[in-house]
Amino acid sequence: MSESSLWVIVIGSIFATYVWRYFGAVFSQKINPDSALFKWVTCVSYAMLGGLISRMVFMPIGPLEVVPGWIRISGIAVGLIAFFLFKKQVLIGVGAGLVVFTLLVSYH
């Protein structure tokens, strides 16, 4: 893909994201953030996130494709276990998952 069409994607994504912020600023004078519409929007974006992350783990695109599935899943599992064992410290969870993933990739 040419560089200019990649820039279209980047700049388009920036503006399309700013739209949410813009309407947030407009509505902040009038609208109740606890309304049903906002809850629905929140649910939609979280479902997308869940879907995106699970696809990245189970069906990755790009460099992670060459890493066996069990290694990817082990990294995620160890990260989650460490996170919940150590008082929900994000950095500990991420660090543990990363170390296990990297070691497994190196020595499997």
Partner: peptide
Amino acid sequence: ASLANARFMPMSV
């Protein structure tokens, strides 16, 4: 990309 960050609207509000 935009929808994945839709939370910015309620957050800004």
